[in-house]
Nucleic acid binder design. Structure first.
Length: 438
RNA sequence: GGAGGCGUCGCCUAGUCCGGUCGAUGGCGCCCGCCUGCUAAGCGGGUUGGGGUCUCAAAAGCCCCUCGGGGGUUCAAAUCCCCCCGCCUCCGCCA
């Protein structure tokens, strides 16, 4: 959620942000009114409650005196108590009514506030999905025609290598499921270990978080708004399957106050990711590019809001370092306002070159969520100034399936074997090539 | 799944039977001041978080809420009643 002070002081800024996301800006005025109502209900309740407590302060000591009093004083004290009690019951009713009104107005203001997305960073390009800005290209895609052979896609390569079994994935679990087999399974472990060791080297604390979370964690990270249809929910237990380790890593410090001196706190989490892919029927149906489940190594950082911009650049830097080590051509894009998640103020994607599609496709993504998630999850920091929300940021180090697609296709050889980049070889027992089964 | 115990403002802790000077005790830690050549000790003070009000804004002040969470009883709830959650111990089951 955003800071209500900003909403009160500069509602136009919030409207503009909503507009640039292509989201409802009428919430702003509804929320302003709801906030006003909430505050007046709060004052009203506070005043009545104060009155009631004052009364209690008079009655209490009298009750005490009554217990100890001699018989001849009893009647007088009782009479005094009765006088005070006369309006007490009526006052209690009014307190109760004011409290109910306070709670109701608070609930409706809170509900509206929960529907507002994060404020867009003014530096982000404005527009929809296709209005991103390309920041940089790294490496040049291979010219397979010049090398004299036809490109095989990852499905074909996966089959030849005995690495990916899509047919049986579908048989057992349905479409958009797969098995990683043989070198495919080994390749996952190699990619994971390489990523974790890179992150640990950069000071991250490795984490294996729960992949099943309570509604508060899902809500707090902003995935139950527009993204809700893509989240798996376990009805019987009221739990959600996470679509990214960002969720349990963000909720890790919920309801906590962290000492500013311990920031930034950087965690790297390895978890399965589950996505319903609602509304993407017919899109990327071939292979493992778009699937309902994959494993991922995700970086997550809690930092001082003043440092968030720099931290975002650092996360992007580590993503690049990883892809550089895999020797895969890619480009970095600055994602446009209309294509950002509810929590993100700004987002950079790295898109790897996919030879079979002859285009760049998203393999990693890093978002600066500023204080948005921290407010919803009540993660705060304390420094000399006091207590206030901190900033959270996240970034993909490796999303297994998409990285595997890029790796297999970019490093394929004429005979169907795949070259293993040097950085990955130690994690594959020194193997320089993945070779066809027969 | 069954039985029992526990949950207090950073940590530990008093209070809960018998509702009102608990509107929460004491210790540790931490912060500020005094003393001291410095440090320690000692002395004095402070130390949950949130909301509201006031203000251009902030601080101070004042008010309300906050004793795991939610509801109830009552003029009044840490304290009584109900539901839920978490932790611990034992039993059962199990990877």
């Amino acid at each position: 959620m955003i800071d209500l002070k900003i909403l009160r002081d500069d509602p136009e800024r919030v409207r503009a942000s909503q507009r640039s996301r292509g989201e409802d800006e009428s919430i702003v005025d509804l929320l302003l009114a709801a906030d006003e109502a909430r505050r007046s209900a709060e004052s009203n309740y506070g005043a009545l409650r104060n009155e009631q407590k004052d009364l209690g302060k008079l009655i209490g000591p009298l009750q005490g005196r009554l217990k100890k009093a001699a018989d001849n004083e009893r009647a007088a004290i009782s009479a005094e108590i009765d006088t005070l009690m006369a309006g007490a019951s009526d006052l209690a009713d009014r307190v109760k009514a004011a409290e109910a009104q306070r709670d109701a107005s608070d609930t409706s203001a809170q509900a509206l506030l929960g529907r507002l997305s994060n404020l867009i960073d003014p530096a982000a390009p404005v527009g929809g999905e296709d209005d991103f800005t390309v920041l940089e290209h790294v490496l040049t895609p291979r010219d397979f025609a010049a090398e004299g052979f036809a490109v095989r896609d990852h499905v074909e390569l996966g089959e030849i290598l005995g690495a990916i079994d899509i047919e049986r994935g579908a048989k057992v679990s349905g479409s958009r499921f797969y098995y990683l087999t043989g070198v495919g399974a080994l390749l996952e472990f190699a990619l994971i270990n390489h990523a974790i060791s890179l992150a640990c080297g950069n000071g991250f604390i490795p984490m294996i978080p729960p992949a099943l979370v309570k509604p508060a964690a899902m809500e707090g990270t902003g995935f139950l708004g527009q993204a809700a249809e893509n989240v798996y929910r376990l009805e019987a237990d009221d739990l959600y399957l996470v679509g990214t380790a960002e969720v349990p890593l963000a909720a890790y410090h919920s309801d906590e106050i962290l000492d500013a001196a311990t920031l930034p706190r950087r965690y790297v989490g390895y978890s399965p990711c589950f996505r319903r892919e609602a509304g993407s029927h017919g899109k990327d149906t071939r292979g493992i590019f778009r699937v309902h489940w994959f494993d991922k190594v995700e970086m997550f950082s809690y930092c001082d809001p003043a440092d968030a911009l720099n931290e975002h650049a650092r996360l992007l830097g580590w993503e690049r370092q990883y892809l550089d080590s895999l020797e895969i051509p890619y480009r970095v894009i600055d994602v446009a306002s209309g294509d950002l998640g509810a929590s993100a103020a700004r987002k950079f994607d790295i898109e790897a070159w996919v030879p079979s599609q002859e285009r760049y496709r998203e393999v990693t993504s890093t978002s600066n969520c500023t204080e948005f998630q921290a407010r919803r999850l009540r993660v705060r920091m304390r420094d000399g100034e006091g207590v206030r929300p901190l900033a959270t940021l996240n970034g993909t180090l490796v999303a297994i399936t998409r990285t595997m697609v890029a790796l297999l296709e970019n490093h394929q050889q004429a005979d169907g074997s795949v070259r293993v980049p040097a950085a990955l070889q130690p994690y594959l027992g020194g193997r320089e090539f993945l070779t066809p089964l027969t």
